[in-house]
Design a protein around this nucleic acid. Structure first.
Lengths: 325, 325
DNA sequence: CTGAAAGCGCTTACAG
DNA sequence: CTGAAAGCGCTTACAG
């Protein structure tokens, strides 16, 4: 920076002003500095800048799932893409960190709170994970994707209306005449797991426990859960599967044992992710508004960084009817 | 830090020494400082530290591919996992950045060279991308995954022996009696694309151009290339497909039009990724040593950061025979 | 083993 | 509009 100032024939203060938008700088000075920057190939030292501004202009995208999940589940991809794009418009870099093990979560908690980032987007939070407490304790602004079980009134989050989506789906299945409707839920330590099950219960009422199985959102878990479900209740005529990926697994299993979907058993999904339209039969599912979720998460986070209080945003979900149910 | 020093009753210098390994610190002082750190909940400011040490203890994993590719292609997952793990052992954080568009590449080039990271792992570099020149110009240590076309003698890289792998596969196909062997290559602006094609040519010799089609490593491109290949040369009896994912696409297409694999057409893959054993028939393929690739990339990068010159590492590939060819 | 002090490379009131 | 100066929070010779 001293070099640039020397070459341009101005003070370092003026160089800094040019770097930060060029306010209060005369035309000739601005031009001289810009020329000098090009000539010297100068790049600001972000650490020095951040040390005084107390800002890093980057935020973390924390995925607290084993790394494989990130790659298997297209929802994360959707969210990541949306957030990156919107943040780029604000000239903020998004750093992806995968916290699969508890050792990872610890290292990343330290890293995040050491000032490397201005805030964090927390995706896929599980009940009992210490991450939220850690972030909260450090006073780092963050927003959670999905309802943060047990922290609803103290942290920002944006969630799709999982419960209502589940209700819509089960109502739809009923309207098609299905009587014995089973469910394959997500992990019951996540909001997507409990809320969709709650919506199902809202409609079905008193549920035969044999009709409920849990998966972990992976395709393999959908296959396994379908097998268990069928063994416990062979008279099922429909299953509400709480993610499209698990639904794909369930269909794979059914086809392998020679059952037709939806003729023998109807299968409904959740997410409206890519697999919903590539699989045969195409999935009847609940559309999650991932674009809006990303958008609202970023908006809330930036507001938070700017000093605003926390808030919750609930976005509507929508029934999409195709062939599978 | 002043707080910690005050609470512990020592100078900031001593606190700093404790933070950096506790050398040259007396037992009682060390203990007092550690107690004070716990009591105050102190966390170092990384920017201040980096400003003086000129190190950030983090490195970037730069994927210069559209984001979708990251999620579709399990090879990236493998590499990422390996690198993260090995770096964690050195207490270095890995930051993933996806540079899909040229605007992204520019922003990330700036970000990376602004001192945020000590070095970079560059994955999936395409011929003509300005990224390598940018990094080189800034003097940032980095190592490339795969042969960096046109930069072989000036940058560090680690690559699997693609050419030899391709040779092994084609020799195998020949030994099985296949006569008309086609190839679906990767993108011809990447080393994986050109080197595997070169290996194929090494064995086949003078090649009928109708036997060559290019894909982009995605499953969809494998399907499309298979269709073109069959139209141009209906008498094919085997195809060497330069990635397992594309091979899966090719098989999907063949099964859809009623051809049997390997009875009507044999299909060979490359990578030995997960899909190789989940698809029916299971793939005969070339195993890439991803674990060792990650390991060597990290080793080379750390050596580079420590001041060593660049180097190239070529790792052997291995034929894995299953049912598809 | 320990403290006082310089310095890392910036930004930003402040005075002009 | 501009420059001189203070200060951001650390680390690390240096002297003791």
């Amino acid at each position: 920076m001293d070099d640039v100032a020397a070459v341009a024939g101005v003070s370092r203060g003026t160089v800094s002003r040019v770097l930060n938008g060029g306010h209060n700088v005369s035309g000739p000075a601005l031009e001289a500095v810009e020329r000098a920057i090009r000539k010297t190939g100068y790049v600001v030292n972000q650490h020095a800048r951040s040390l005084v501004t107390q800002r890093s202009d980057s935020v973390a995208f924390i995925l607290s799932e084993p790394q494989d999940r990130l790659f298997e589940d297209p929802n994360f991809n959707n969210l990541l893409r949306g957030c990156t794009q919107i943040l780029a418009e604000h000239d903020i870099t998004l750093l992806l960190t995968v916290a699969g093990t508890s050792a990872d979560r610890k290292r990343i908690g330290r890293w995040v709170t050491a000032g490397h980032v201005d805030g964090a987007l927390v995706v896929s939070n599980h009940l009992g994970s210490p991450l939220l407490d850690e972030l909260k304790g450090r006073g780092l602004p963050f927003v959670v994707c999905g309802r943060p079980l047990g922290h609803e009134r103290e942290v920002s989050y944006v969630a799709a209306d999982d419960r209502d989506g589940a209700r819509q789906m089960v109502v739809h299945l009923r309207s098609r005449g299905y009587q014995r409707i089973g469910i394959i839920t997500g992990p019951l330590d996540t909001s997507g797991g409990v809320d969709r099950l709650a919506g199902y219960r809202d409609v079905v009422g008193d549920v035969d426990p044999a009709l409920i199985e849990a998966g972990d959102y992976s395709q393999a878990s959908g296959e396994a859960a379908m097998e268990r479900l069928l063994r416990a209740g062979p008279d099922l005529d429909a299953v509400f599967v709480c993610s499209d990926l698990m639904a794909a697994g369930a269909i794979t299993y059914l086809q392998r044992i020679g059952k037709r979907v939806p003729d023998d058993i109807a299968i409904a999904g959740f997410d409206d992710s890519k697999v919903a339209t590539t699989i045969t039969p195409r999935l009847t599912t609940i559309r999650q508004p991932f674009g809006r979720v990303s958008q609202e998460m970023v908006r809330l986070l930036l507001a938070h960084i700017a000093g605003e209080q926390h808030a919750a945003v609930i976005l509507p979900t929508e029934l999409v009817i195709r062939e599978s149910a």
